[in-house]
Design a protein around this nucleic acid. Structure first.
Lengths: 160, 160
DNA sequence: TATGAAAGACATCATGT
DNA sequence: ACATGATGTCTTTCATA
């Protein structure tokens, strides 16, 4: 299924760095004919190895302060309630522009990546919007200060 | 500084969805001449509002199991040691292919996004590579199970 | 800054090695 | 996998408002 050779990987690495390079430029860098590069990219798209093309936004639009938040709900008496409560919190959070990502974490948890212009605003957001939610067992906030891998994450997730 | 008008934002939103749309297609959708769209995109690039163009890789290449890990180091007697120890751990982690992102978290902490093919492998990785590190005060692992916002994150971060 | 038009560059496809 | 050529589309530039 996932059969990629060296050429495929080389192409993917180049496109990851700059998805706007022309086929001719990629062909030149890899010392291969344009027709081959064109063919490979077409196949990679058809096989959905390349899922989509997108842009990363610059610092101007990025929140200066980032954090990862873990939210754990109190386990209620009525089983179905937990499910619906967690879903509701997730939906609510996902609509907020400074919530960059939200995911389920286990049966009773949520993890979110949140951003704001300053650490103070970020803390206020956590206090006002998250800690104020009823029947939570635990809220953990981990500030994200300086990436050494995956630094483009913020520009990728931020909305316009 | 961050002066974006409605047209700029519309263009950015479209490019975020599909950065391979031609200028003509974008122009058509927004009912503007091609030259205007071209001019705007050029400006957005020059101003670094658009930082770069990239690809998102499909499920085939993505780890099936994701987690966020928080690592806190024991505060040592010698001040400078903490700094160097944290840096060392971060560098080591950043070289591993199943560590998708690593960032500093406060004075004595690290957050990382890790991925593996199965939950079992992921746990083994955490046990073998992270919990085995000396002089740690705390290691927290939060599984990331199902995104409802920012789902493309995995395909964006995964390497080739 | 916006636009229209024209020129050149490019992707794409078919065909053959 | 690679080469070549034909076609239509797209980008880019520039003159103009």
């Amino acid at each position: 299924m996932a059969q990629l050779d060296d050429l495929d990987r080389a192409i993917l690495r180049i496109l990851k760095e700059d998805a706007r390079l022309t086929i001719s430029e990629i062909a030149e860098r890899l010392n291969r004919p344009e027709s081959t590069i064109h063919f490979r990219i077409k196949k990679l798209q058809e096989r959905n190895v390349i899922d989509k093309y997108t842009i990363i936004l610059g610092e101007e639009l990025q929140p200066k302060s980032l954090a990862i938040v873990y939210i754990q709900a109190e386990t209620p008496i009525i089983e179905d309630f937990l499910e619906r409560y967690i879903s509701h919190i997730m939906k609510t959070l996902s609509l907020l522009p400074n919530v960059l990502a939200v995911a389920r974490s286990g049966k009773d948890g949520i993890v979110a990546i949140i951003g704001d212009d300053t650490p103070e605003k970020l803390n206020r957001f956590v206090d006002d919007t998250i800690r104020s939610l009823p029947t939570l067992k635990r809220v953990e906030v981990f500030t994200v200060d300086q990436f050494i891998k995956g630094q483009d994450l913020t520009g990728f997730l931020v909305g316009v």
